[in-house]
Simulated scan of single mutants.
Amino acid sequence: MSADLQFSVEPTTHPASDDQRAQVLANPGFGQYFSDHMAIATWTAEKGWHDARITAFGPLELSPATSVFHYAQTIFEGMKAYRHPDDSIHLFRPEANAARFQRSAQRLALPDLPTEVFLDSLHKLVEIDKAWVPGGGETSLYLRPFMFGSDPFLGVRPSAQVTYCVIASPAGSYFANGVKPVRIWLSEEYTRAAPRRHRCGEDRRQLRLVAARPGRGDRAGLRPGRVPGRRREEVGRRARRDEPVLRSR
């Protein structure tokens, strides 16, 4: 698959009305409502990445035998699009999310999604659903890219078919009742954001899936009996600088 793949745009014929959208944006909460469109693409061992499009948000038709249901071969990311006072819309360092998405794919024996393709799906989804980006306060449009094994096959091997999707959900302030002091517990021994962190639906059988693809287990640094993503000790404490805010197209 080359990074030349671009998402075609197929506008929905049944978008939410202005009144319906305004009602949602007045109190979006988190993860309860979704914009009119989603991004979707398919990968197969024979054709690589193809059929990339922005289309109407809706259900996915999957066989009960789809591998993700049985072996949890799936990864995800999360980021936000923000509306600025000049009405422009910005994404915060999405290249970093693309890089982590690629690292997660490697750990789960999923195909690599080029950064350019990842960014194209975000930009075009935000562009067509820009009316869903709330403004003011700490509101945003939450973007959820995810990838899963969609091969209808019951067997312990990496999926021969994979689906990539991005959905979008307007989000209100994380602290619905305002920011208030909270009691926290700090650990110097463990970290939630460890080096080489990945985000996936974990299952011990994933080790067997990774091992079924020659060389992938070795590159991921996996050892028999170890589940990826569990506790990591003695992690490096490297400060990361924020990258510049990017303007969506």
Rank of each mutant, 00 (worst) to 15 (best):
Glu116Pro: 00
Lys124Ser: 05
Ala220Glu: 08
Leu91Ser: 03
Val9Cys: 05
Arg83Lys: 15
Ile54Phe: 03
His70Ser: 10
Tyr71Arg: 04
Lys130Met: 07
Glu61Ile: 14
Gln20Asn: 12
Arg199Gln: 09
Glu189Met: 07
Ser35Ile: 03
Phe118Lys: 03
Asp87Thr: 12
Gly215Leu: 10
Ser35Leu: 04
Ala98Thr: 01
Lys80Val: 11
His50Trp: 08
Arg144Thr: 08
Asp112Lys: 10
Ala3Gln: 15
Gln102Glu: 11
Arg223Met: 11
Arg100Val: 05
Asp51Val: 04
Arg21Asp: 01
Ala131Gly: 12
Gln73Asn: 06
Cys200His: 04
Ser63Lys: 08
Lys124Val: 03
Ser150Gly: 12
Gln23Trp: 09
Asp19Pro: 01
Gly78Asn: 06
Ala16Leu: 13
Val117Ile: 15
Thr42Gln: 14
Arg240Ser: 11
Ala239Cys: 05
Ala109Leu: 05
Leu91Ile: 11
Arg83Cys: 09
Arg230Gly: 13
Gly178Tyr: 13
Arg219Cys: 03
Val227Trp: 10
Asp87Phe: 10
Val182Glu: 11
Asp19Arg: 12
Arg196Ala: 12
Gly137His: 04
Phe101Gly: 00
Pro158Glu: 05
Arg93Ala: 12
Gly217Gln: 14
Arg144Ser: 10
Arg213Glu: 13
Arg192Asp: 04
Val235Lys: 01
Ser248Arg: 04
Lys124Met: 08
Ala194Gln: 04
Phe148Cys: 05
Val162Asn: 05
Gln102Thr: 13
Arg183His: 10
Thr42Gly: 02
Gly229Ser: 07
Gly215Glu: 07
Gly172Ala: 06
Asn97Ile: 02
Ser2Val: 10
Glu202Ala: 13
Val24Leu: 11
Arg232Phe: 12
Ala72Val: 04
Asn177Gln: 15
Val227Ile: 15
His14Asn: 14
Ser159Val: 09
Gln102Trp: 01
Ser67Met: 12
Arg216Val: 15
Ser173Leu: 05
Asp112Arg: 13
Met1Glu: 09
His90Arg: 13
Arg230Cys: 09
Arg197Cys: 08
Gly29Asp: 03
Ile54His: 01
Asp87Val: 04
Val227Asn: 14
Ile40Asn: 00
His84Arg: 14
Pro28His: 04
Arg204Trp: 07
Ser2Asp: 15
Asp120Arg: 04
Arg53Gln: 13
Gln6Met: 09
Tyr142Trp: 09
Trp185Ile: 12
Tyr164Glu: 00
Arg205Cys: 12
Pro94Gln: 06
Pro228Thr: 02
Gly31Tyr: 04
Thr139Leu: 02
Gly229Ala: 06
Pro244Thr: 08
Tyr174Gln: 06
Val179Ile: 14
Asp87Leu: 09
Val156Phe: 04
Arg249His: 12
Ala168Asn: 01
Ala39Arg: 00
Asp242Leu: 14
Ala168Gly: 06
Gly135Asp: 03
Val245Trp: 12
Glu10Thr: 11
Ile75Thr: 01
Phe57Ser: 09
Asn177Glu: 14
Ala194Pro: 01
Ala98Phe: 02
Trp43Thr: 03
Val162Arg: 02
